[in-house]
Design a binder for these strands. Structure first.
Ligand SMILES: [Mn+2]
Ligand SMILES: [Mn+2]
Ligand SMILES: [Zn+2]
Ligand SMILES: [Zn+2]
Lengths: 152, 152
DNA sequence: ATTTAATTGAGATTGAATCTCAATTAATGA
DNA sequence: TCATTAATTGAGATTCAATCTCAATTAAAT
């Protein structure tokens, strides 16, 4: 685990203490696994990863810990309309949006400051105080346009 | 039912015939109810409305009919992260996006051509062929900023 | 009127997410 | 180090939206 992520872990530890929550082995393990995970993983990715390891962690605990991590801003919850949630480690990553290929499932991240500013302006017009923006573009990625079966 | 919506119904009828599907009383009733419904309704809104009427329609049939209507483009399915889907009658309404107040649940629609064009440009850059865009802004509406309990 | 493939509805099933509660454990401080 | 206490865990039950199954019904075409 990198220096940066060790820092994150101690930030997590402090946040827990601040709210009188305990630093349990389960929470520690979930945190460090997440910090090393691929992007946009789902709960079962964690469940099965732990399942194969020495000490399993129950679904309930995983869900509960994720809620805390989302609250604290270490993890972002994303919904690509699959009927279940995905998550991404947020601590070392700035604002971005997603393109989702409906053929191969690949997810492309992009950042567009103009897009962001447009939205801010709209909020001003509506006198709306935003807490969260969702921008998603569904369609066919470059590969899948060429060969419709590429991703299968 | 307006002239416009009668036209829609016959378009629906034709679409059904084209695919060898039958025009049943249930489908007719669902269609006309939808065409008169408020925006962003959910399945249970329909279920209960039919429940109180003469002839009830089963959940399964409602879901199946909605799938067809979404396929044909008469209805748009929207997800505001509530754990269930909402729908809106699409036939007489052009492109728009949504602001969702997290306090009172109100949904505001807006249309911004620049935003749309920005997204188109991004798709070109990524060589991505879009089929669907989702833009949602969650936060506090004007009313709810002033009085946090306004919507309760 | 007959034929046939599509449709319906009741109820079972799935799958994600949440809840319950008894047993366990981290944290605090004497 | 040990006792106290409130937080945590895990197994399994529960919830809820959505989908599936299948026998009975029905729209539509001839
Ligand atoms: Mn991402
Ligand atoms: Mn709308
Ligand atoms: Zn693709
Ligand atoms: Zn509001």
């Amino acid at each position: 685990m990198s220096i940066m992520k060790d820092q994150d872990l101690s930030t997590f530890t402090e946040a827990l203490r601040r709210e009188n929550l305990k630093l349990t082995p389960q929470r520690k393990k979930i945190f460090s696994t997440i910090a090393e995970s691929d992007e946009h993983w789902e709960v079962d990715d964690l469940v099965y990863r732990f399942w194969e390891s020495e000490d399993r962690i129950s679904r309930a605990t995983i869900y509960r810990t994720l809620d805390i991590l989302v609250d604290y801003g270490f993890v972002r919850k994303v919904d690509f309309g699959e009927g279940r949630s995905r998550y991404e480690y947020a601590a070392d990553k700035k604002y971005h949006d997603h393109m989702i290929c409906e053929e191969c499932g690949e997810i492309f991240e992009f950042t567009d400051e103009n897009l962001r500013k447009h939205q801010e302006r709209l909020c001003e017009i509506f006198d709306f105080t935003p807490s969260k923006h969702v921008v998603q573009i569904y369609g066919l990625c470059s590969e899948c346009q060429a060969e419709p079966d590429a991703g299968k």
